[in-house]
Design a protein around this nucleic acid. Structure first.
Length: 458
RNA sequence: GGCUCGGUGGCAGAGUGGUAAUGCAGCGGAUUGCAAAUCCGUCAACGCCGGUUCGAUUCCGACCCGAGCCUCCA
C-alpha cells in the first residue's frame, strides 16, 4: 500500500503514518464553538482535514471522522443573554449556518458530530476518574487539574512546567495550587446553564469535552487529532493531560496542526476584529474558489488572505474548467484517483500545492491532446479534482451561472449573440464588435470557436 | 523574557547535498476579421555571515527580519 506521511506536532517530524488498526482509522478535529458565523480562518482546518479525510478514505476501508460542536461555553452564554434568548436558539442557528457554509466549501460532513451538551455524563465520569487518580482537586466549587501531577505535561507544546509556572503572566486565581492548573468543572450562577454534579451545579471546563467525547465516540485512543495551531497550547496540551491521566494509554498517535489565515500579515481572529465571514465571501465567490484558495498553500504555512489570493484561485479554476468545457464532447477515461500524481503528492504530508501543480499539468496535457489522448487526460484531470473536492461542477454552468440576480439574463445574452452572429455572417464587423463591446461592459466575455460562440461571466 | 515556526524570481508557491516545480503577471510568436481561449518561446529567485563537504538554497552555528503561542481564539 502507498505510504502516507504526516507531520506530527508531538515529535516535530514528518512520520510514516501507521494506524493503530488498519481496519478502522480514527480522526478527531476540533470543531466550532457555535456563537457566531464561521470566518475564513475557521474554514482552513475544516478544508485541510477534509483533504486528509479524503486521502484516508482512499487508503483504508473504514475511517471514522469526528468533529465536535461546542454548544456550551461562556461566549455562547453571553451571546444568548445579549439576544435575550436561550443558548439553544443561539447554538441551533450557528450550528446550522456552520454546516451550510462548510458544505459550500465542498467539505464532506464528518461521520460523527458530537455535541458537548449531549456528553455531560462522560465528562463527569472523567473528572471523577481524575480526582480518584490524584490528578485533580476541588476548590471553591471548581474542579481543577493539577499540572504537576503529570510528568510529561508540556511535551506537546514544547514547554516545561518550571518555565511555565515561573513565567506566568496572568493573574492566578487564588484557589489554584499552581498557576498552570486548569478548570475541569466550574460553578454556574443562578440562571446560567448548568448540570448537577458531585461538585455542585455547574458546567464543564472548555478542554474537557474533547477528551470525554473522543473516548465516548472513538475509543480510548485515536490515530489522528487535528486542529489549528493555536490549539496546541493550552487546549490540546490539556486534553492530552486529561485523557492520558484519566484513561491511561497513548491517547493520540499523530497530532496535526494547520497554520493560520493571516489578514494583511496579521493573524485573523475574532478578538482582533479583522475577520471575514465565510458566508460573506460566499456571496462574492463560489465556494470552490474559497476551497482552492485555502488549498493553494501547504497547511503548515501561514496563508495570507486577500482579494488577490481569491482572484488567482478563480483564474486557476477558470483554466481547468475552460479545458473541460473545450473538451465537453470527450468521454473521459475512467481513472482511479489513487493512480494519479496528485494523490501521490497528497500522500506526502498533504502537499496540496504540488497536487495543484499536477492539476495544471493534466490540464495542459488535455489542452494539447488529440482526440485520442484527450479521454485519458480528461480522466486524469477529473480524477485528481475528485480527490481534492474540486472540478465537480458542470463547466458550462461554471462560466454562465450568475453570481447575483443583477445584470443580463441568459436569454438576453443569447439574443445578442444571435444578432452578432448574423452581423458577422454578412461581414459587418463593426456591428459585431459593438455587440461584443456592449456585453463586455456588462461583464460578459465572448469566445468565438470553430463551433460557434461561447460566453462567460467575468 | 520563555517556547515555536518561517524568510525561494514582480507576485503566489513547491522542492532538493550537485545551481530550483507550478501558476499569475511581463515580453516575443502562432492562431483569429479583430478579440477571447489555446499553443510555442522567453525574462527572472534560494535574507545575511561563518562552518561541515569535492560541492549547500538544502545540514550545523551566529546574526538580521517576520509571524505565532505563553490569555478566549482555527
Amino acid at each position: 500500500m502507498a505510504e502516507l506521511r504526516l507531520t506530527n506536532t508531538l515529535t516535530g517530524k514528518k512520520e510514516i503514518f501507521e494506524p493503530r488498526d488498519p481496519e478502522q482509522i480514527t480522526l478527531y478535529v476540533c470543531g466550532p464553538t457555535v456563537y457566531n458565523l464561521a470566518h475564513i480562518g475557521n474554514a482552513r482546518p475544516v478544508v485541510v482535514f477534509d483533504m486528509l479525510y479524503r486521502v484516508l478514505r482512499a487508503l483504508y476501508p473504514r475511517v471514522r471522522y469526528a468533529r465536535n460542536i461546542t454548544d456550551i461555553d461562556d461566549k455562547i452564554i453571553a451571546a444568548a443573554r445579549e439576544r435575550n434568548e436561550g443558548i439553544e436558539a443561539v447554538t441551533k442557528e450557528f450550528t446550522d449556518k456552520y454546516r451550510e457554509d462548510m458544505a459550500k466549501l465542498h467539505t464532506l460532513p464528518p461521520d460523527l458530530e458530537p455535541r458537548a451538551t449531549e456528553n455531560i455524563e462522560p465528562m463527569r465520569d472523567l473528572i471523577v476518574q481524575l480526582i480518584e487518580r490524584g490528578h485533580a482537586y476541588t476548590a471553591e466549587a471548581h474542579v481543577l487539574f493539577d499540572v504537576t501531577s503529570m510528568p510529561s505535561y508540556g511535551a506537546l507544546s514544547g514547554r516545561n512546567l518550571d518555565d511555565m509556572l515561573a513565567g506566568a503572566r496572568v493573574e492566578v486565581a487564588d484557589y489554584k495550587r499552581n498557576a498552570g492548573d486548569f478548570v475541569l468543572w466550574k460553578p454556574s450562577a443562578q440562571g446560567e446553564p448548568g448540570w448537577d454534579s458531585p461538585w455542585g451545579w455547574g458546567r464543564p471546563g472548555w478542554h474537557l469535552e474533547c477528551s470525554a467525547m473522543i473516548r465516548a465516540h472513538l475509543g480510548d485512543a485515536i490515530d489522528i487529532h487535528g486542529g489549528g495551531r493555536d490549539l496546541i497550547f493550552p487546549h490540546h496540551e490539556n486534553e492530552r493531560a486529561q485523557s492520558c491521566c484519566g484513561y491511561g494509554g497513548d491517547f493520540v498517535r499523530y497530532w496535526m496542526h494547520n497554520a493560520y489565515v493571516d489578514m494583511d500579515g496579521e493573524k485573523m481572529s475574532k478578538s482582533l476584529g479583522n475577520v471575514r465571514a465565510v458566508r460573506e465571501l460566499l456571496g462574492m465567490y463560489p465556494g470552490e474558489v474559497l476551497r482552492f484558495a485555502l488549498l493553494s498553500t501547504h497547511y503548515r504555512s501561514p496563508l495570507n488572505f486577500s482579494g488577490e489570493l481569491l482572484d488567482n484561485a478563480k483564474t486557476a479554476l477558470n483554466g481547468f474548467y475552460q479545458a473541460l468545457r473545450n473538451s465537453a464532447d470527450i468521454d473521459p477515461e475512467d481513472i482511479r484517483a489513487e493512480d494519479t500524481a496528485a494523490f501521490t503528492a497528497l500522500l506526502d504530508d498533504l502537499n496540496t500545492p504540488q497536487a495543484i501543480a499536477e492539476l495544471h499539468s493534466a490540464c495542459k496535457a488535455l489542452n494539447k491532446a488529440d482526440a485520442k489522448g484527450a479521454a485519458t487526460c480528461k480522466g486524469h484531470l477529473l480524477a485528481m479534482g475528485r480527490m481534492m473536492g474540486l472540478l465537480g461542477s458542470d463547466p458550462e454552468q461554471w462560466f454562465t451561472e450568475a453570481a447575483s440576480d443583477s445584470g443580463l439574463t441568459q436569454e438576453d445574452i443569447e439574443q445578442r449573440l444571435a444578432a452578432r452572429l448574423e452581423a458577422r455572417a454578412r461581414k459587418d464587423f463593426a456591428a459585431a464588435d459593438a455587440v461584443r463591446d456592449e456585453l463586455q461592459a456588462a461583464g460578459i466575455e465572448l469566445e468565438d470557436g470553430p463551433e460557434g460562440t461561447s460566453w462567460r461571466r467575468a
